[in-house]
Design a binder for these strands. Sequence first.
DNA 1: ATTATATTTAACTATATAGTTGAATATACA
DNA 2: TGTATATTCAACTATATAGTTAAATATAAT
Lengths: 113, 113
Amino acid sequence: MVNQNEENLNEIFHALANETRRDIVRMMALNERTVSELAEPFDMSLAAISKHIKVLEKANLVERIINGRTHICRLKTESLSQATEWLNFYEKFWSKRFDLLESELMKAKRKEN
Amino acid sequence: MVNQNEENLNEIFHALANETRRDIVRMMALNERTVSELAEPFDMSLAAISKHIKVLEKANLVERIINGRTHICRLKTESLSQATEWLNFYEKFWSKRFDLLESELMKAKRKEN
DNA sequence: ATTATATTTAACTATATAGTTGAATATACA
DNA sequence: TGTATATTCAACTATATAGTTAAATATAAT
């Protein structure tokens, strides 16, 4: 059953590890967009963008609303939050350690005087 | 000159898109560790872990202090922060949009009455 | 000097990724 | 009905990734 949460994190971080896909996220953050609207700024085939969107979808970063022949893509932020949480945990952990280290140094300094 | 900042983000997110590497980050968050200490819990060759550490190093997530024949690995948080910032920006953006949407709905609701 | 320990490097394999082009599918329009 | 539009799918290529094992390097210990 391969821990689902870790698998999600793999997919989210992998999805974000590509500049084109981050650009797509940026565009969707401004407003929901159709596939061809998302593809327009890129010097790349529509099929390539279609694949990128699928990667974002697999990572649960995109919701697709099929509206006749056009697909509307909307950013889903739950996954973004999941990634943020992971990062925040370790960042906080680290800064706490750092503060601890600092206060130890202060103690040592005080003893010197 | 391929935007350096975007290249960094590629490397950071790619480094974090792997469970083994996230585990390594977790271990280093607790305390700095030698390469073999980091390798110990994994059912994987030392060479494989050596490579994973290199990926983290390339992403600027690890600082290596060579101490005789042992290498000590320490987490660097600047890169973590860089990733967090990227994520926070889009999360905030999105929740702002959402708030806006909500307040529009409220306005509409009030007009109904 | 010899041997043991810590780590990297090289060569290799299997699989995944990012892109391409051309065809297929599905819907809209005249 | 026939044609244009929006999107995906399939097949293919080139490159990257994650792992392996065996050998190389460098330092420490006897």
